[in-house]
Design a binder for these strands. Structure first.
Lengths: 132, 132
DNA sequence: ACTGATGATCAGCAATCCTGACGATCAGTG
DNA sequence: CACTGATCGTCAGGATTGCTGATCATCAGT
């Protein structure tokens, strides 16, 4: 079975599985963590900017932020310059949890790619296929 | 953005998109085609055997076959040896459509991997990550 | 004949993603 | 200032996919 779709789908499923398990103790999953990572550094972003960075839908990011806000990882604030925009920032708890969870993610990815001779190249090839 | 989950997810999304578009004229999508490919060669398989080959759920394969049967690509027959089993076979139309669609798929995958220096290696690495 | 396992189907749930509509707000124009 | 069109976020809802548990028919072994 060497169909590309099959391979990508199940490789992704395996990774998602392992990430989900490993991140569960921190109250996060892989998608949550990606959201945090998008807003952790640099100037504060609006929801739409976060959505664009993660290539997810504008409504999906709303749902994700709902969950993260409920759990106290992020806060939404109306931008004073443009009151349509919700600026998203990490709470203190968000910062510390992110730092830990991000280390876990890196470790998971390292282990995941361990069977490959050159994991970094594999990752670069994925980027290439995405046109990034 | 070099998160593995992000990359795999969106690379898969792009491939799925292109496959879906290219296969639409034949009344198939990538998943349908994978089902056909699983049963096209060799001895007839039961639904469960097809599901195992494709690593999909036993109930999902039922739904997929419902669609393929409606469109006249496959037939389900009770196995005479074990009347619990549904043996799945291609119809004549299924055979010819499969042959054409499979060529399309190969072409799509070839183009998709074109940006890489060594597409075959990339595919092998995916297999490796799946443990196959 | 009885028991336990297996194959297929069904109903139903959960996650994910997207669409369309809406209210609030902004920017540009006259 | 008033008006128009665009943008941001939210909401309701639908489509897809994947899974679980229950059920029925059938099989295999005792």
């Amino acid at each position: 079975m060497d169909r590309l779709g099959y391979l990508l789908k199940h490789v992704l499923a395996r990774l998602t599985d392992e990430q989900t398990k490993a991140l569960a103790p921190y109250g996060l999953n892989g998608r949550d963590l990606a959201v945090l990572s998008a807003i952790v550094a640099g100037e504060p972003l609006s929801q739409l900017e976060v959505a664009h960075r993660l290539r997810v839908d504008r409504t999906s990011i709303g749902d994700l932020l709902d969950g993260l806000e409920e759990r106290g990882f992020v806060e939404r604030r109306r931008s004073p310059e443009d009151r349509r925009r919700n600026v998203v920032v990490l709470t203190e708890q968000g910062e510390t949890t992110f730092a830990t969870a991000e280390r876990i993610r890196l470790e998971i990815e390292r282990e995941f790619l361990a069977p490959l001779a050159d994991g970094a190249r594999f990752r670069d090839e994925l980027k290439l296929l995405l046109g990034e």
